[in-house]
Design a protein around this nucleic acid. Structure first.
Lengths: 344, 344
DNA sequence: GTGAAAGCGCTAACAT
DNA sequence: ATGTTAGCGCTTTCAC
């Protein structure tokens, strides 16, 4: 900047005014400065700028998700990025892999770079460590899940209700022995989806059987193994409810490996690519990661623009998409499980 | 920081030394300062820090990809993020959607935030605008494709060779009429894969038929429509080579919609989730986005650490994974295309 | 319309 | 072992 000023024979202030288009500068000097800027390849240092502008913002937002490589979060991330772009902000991303320590590191690293705000898919555990930062002016919006211990804007779906509807869809096709497959139990939505599963069974007068409930499934292989274990058991489930995309895809593999994919019904949480092209096509409860991301981004930007209401809890809709796997009736011809005592 | 100094009754420099663990400070004062830091929730402003440390780095790297929501780039991004994390850097991301203007905006926005380096999946077009920045010290590594007009480190695969092998796999099963489906022709790898396709045909003495070549397919729907158009034509191809994951998935839909998925062979570039579970399972040429990402990140960090060799061109391996769709023989029973003049 | 001076939060380089 | 001074690149404030 100093070089530009020297080269065009004006003061630093004039350069500043030209670069930012503020104040009033003689047209002739504007031209001289602009020429020098181009010649020297000068670009404003936004960081130094922001240092002096007491009120100024960095134009950086942080996005902390569970796993950027998961299509759900990749779509959410792109939606956030789109919204940020339209506003001239840039996005710092990081994956926590549901590890609170990792999340804390990311938040610290992001805050050290003066992010204006944070969109957070919180890991399990207390987020009280964020309180002091929020008090200090950090805007935080939670996506997909609320964060324990802080009251901030949250964008999510009604997991419990959606899961209940999914399981009821299976019950409506005559199933009584419905298995539940889920990720780590301490993740909020996983627990809520389990609750919805239990709700559906309870309303139908069916007791929850712990042997049909498998949690802590982090990767597809875990879910596939759980399914194999379930269908090989003496009294196998006639239907499976998987509580996220990873579990659903694992279950598809598991069922196919035992050649029971046409016999055991399947409803999965989260839609996924090619679900409609599988055999049978997979019935899912779809949520919209893109909508979640853009809603969270808009909420964050509203806060940055001074919105000072109570924290909002936005609950977005879900839709059950029946494709085939969830409509397989209970105990079709060919399933060889001997009828036994009803409940156990 | 000033507050911390006041609260603990020491000078700014002492606080600085304690916070950074540099120099020598009396244990008692260290304790006092640390207490004040905790009490006030003080966190160092890395940006101001970096402003003063002339040599210092921002600890921010930029990652510019085609589309973050595409699983290929999502995996690449996660690999970059992992590598950055291990180094204490954070990652700014952005999607260009193969638009050079958008890419330029992202690069400008990232540089204004003083990124140390850039990992770039370049859009089509001249990247001469980067020259001045590279001269000014910006480290750039290209991933997936080289950038036009600049000489920088590049991490990629041998698209032409891999595509040739994929098409030869089809030819080995007796196919003579092999269609090519691709994204925008001005994207480097798309052109290279087309060249590989043409190579395979030429080596086998088969002329390339323009009517079997469909490009500019950006989304699955485009590819599905192209496939429908191809198979409905008078002299339909007996095999299809799709030059990326989007085209492959589109082709799967297109073939299924005309119920010819067991009759028309398919080899796709890029592996994708559930490919092995489709009917028939899809034969692909797999590249490793994760390896590309981590290699690019390591290369970038080497440069930031002072590596001053000539720009490197790293070429990673690919593997053909035969699953079924690529092994369908030419002209199976039931394909009703009347034999006509050979070439036209 | 323009510039000079002060200072954002921090740290080199020199004191002491 | 600690404090002082100067200044990173920029903008604010106020004077001209």
């Amino acid at each position: 900047m100093k070089d530009v000023a020297t080269a065009s024979g004006v003061s630093l202030m004039t350069v500043s005014r030209v670069v930012n288009g503020t104040g009033t500068v003689a047209p002739e000097k504007v031209a001289r400065v602009e020429r020098a800027v181009r010649a020297l390849g000068y670009q404003r240092n936004d960081l130094a700028r922001r240092l002096r502008q007491k009120n100024g913002t960095s134009g950086i937002v942080g996005l902390v998700v569970d796993d950027l490589a998961n299509p759900f979060f990749a779509l959410l991330a792109r939606a956030v990025e789109d919204a940020a772009q339209r506003r001239g902000s840039v996005v710092l991303v990081g994956s926590t892999h549901d590890d609170l320590d990792r999340e804390r590191q990311l938040v610290t690293a992001f805050c050290a770079r003066q992010v204006d705000g944070l969109i957070l898919v919180p890991a399990a555990g207390s987020h009280a460590f964020l309180l002091v930062r929020i008090t200090a002016g950090l805007a935080v919006v939670c996506a997909d899940r609320p964060a324990d211990g802080i009251e901030v804007d949250t964008v999510r779906i009604d997991n419990r209700d959606a899961a209940r509807r999914g399981v009821e869809h299976l019950l409506a096709h005559g199933h009584r022995a419905v298995a539940f497959l889920g990720d780590l139990a301490d993740i909020g939505p996983v627990q809520e989806r389990y609750d919805g599963y239990a709700d559906a069974l309870t309303r139908a007068g069916i007791p929850v059987q712990e042997r049909l409930v498998r949690r802590g499934l982090r990767v597809e292989r875990d879910a596939a193994a759980a399914v194999v274990d379930l269908v090989d058991a003496p009294d196998p489930p006639t239907a499976i409810f998987t509580s996220n995309d990873v579990a659903t895809i694992g279950a598809v593999h598991g069922l196919a490996s035992r050649a029971v994919h046409h016999k055991v019904a399947l409803v999965g949480f989260d839609d996924f690519q090619l679900a409609e092209r599988l055999d049978p096509p997979v019935t899912v409860i779809r949520q919209e990661p893109t909508t979640i991301g853009s809603t969270a981004a808009h909420l964050l930007f509203s806060r940055l623009d001074g919105l000072a209401e109570e924290p909002r809890a936005m609950v977005l809709g879900t839709r059950l998409i029946a494709r085939g796997s969830g409509e397989i009736p209970a105990r079709p011809a060919g399933v060889s499980s001997t009828p036994r005592r009803g409940t156990l």
